[in-house]
Amino acid sequence: MSGANGRLQVFTSKWQAALLLLPTLALITVFLYYPFLETVQLSFYRIRVLGNQQWVGLEHYARLLESETYRNSLVVTVIFTVVTVTVSLLLSLLVSFLVHEADSLSDFYLIGLIWPYAMPLAVAGVVLDFIINPQLGVLTYALEAAVGFEFNWNTDGTLALAAVILAAVWQGLGYSIIFMTAALSQLPDSVTEAAELDGVSRLGRLFRVYVPLISPVLVFLVVLQTIGAFFGGFALIDLMTGGGPSNATNVLMFNLYEDAFTNSRFGYAAAQSVLLFGFVAVLMYVQLRVTDRYAYYGGA
């Protein structure tokens, strides 16, 4: 351990340290490492009822590679993730910028803008399911009356994905705004003054001056939101679309859940978990690499 930390290490009893660590280590062994390793093992078995398993080797992986449904789920997940993260971060950036620019009431705005962070996805799901319901929704009705657009997301796969993304963006805004407003508020006034003296327009100031300065936070958010979107959204899809129409919103996580807990294909679902782990590992690796690269940018 580092020198600074070394001065804090005032206790030396190894068994005391072990005792203090025991609860955490025991819990992560039983509920994290063991199930994680067991996932790999189960993926080699066919299990239709728990406790009754037959060895099938790599069959599940071969099936996943061939399966059109799975490939579709991968594509849907990537689209859901990319669009959700892009739209959500762009909107959060603009909104945070507005809060930063507001000379008064910024606390009030902040509360009004970040509360969706506390909103359960399931609540976002059921509320929007009704408000933008193709037949009964007041917003869908208003939209159709105003511009004649029928937001028929019950039958149109692309619109269904759009509806789920809308809900995800709405619920996810608060989190990004928290970080972005914090980062913006730490910028020294001199930066703003210099930009104004140079005659940089307001939006130019945001994108050419502020964005590079807060890029470490933005990168952190991109990675975090990407991982979140990749695994999240389950409640929204379960409550709004059930993966449909025709699998258009059947993200990887929903497909896994259905295979395991609706269709009782536990082994096949375990193989999907293993592949999911591969995706997390890659995303995390990218996170570390990217954060490293940006860590010194702008001195933040």
């Binding site: 490492y33 199930p35 994680f36 996932t39 728990l50 896994l256 375990a270 978990s273 293993v274 997390v280």
Partner: peptide, 17 residues
């Protein structure tokens, strides 16, 4: 390292456990 193990990657065995 357990940050790499969100619920989805271990849900089946956890349920079985």
């Amino acid at each position: 390292f357990t940050l790499l193990m969100p619920l989805p990657v271990r849900i089946v065995p956890l349920y079985q456990l």
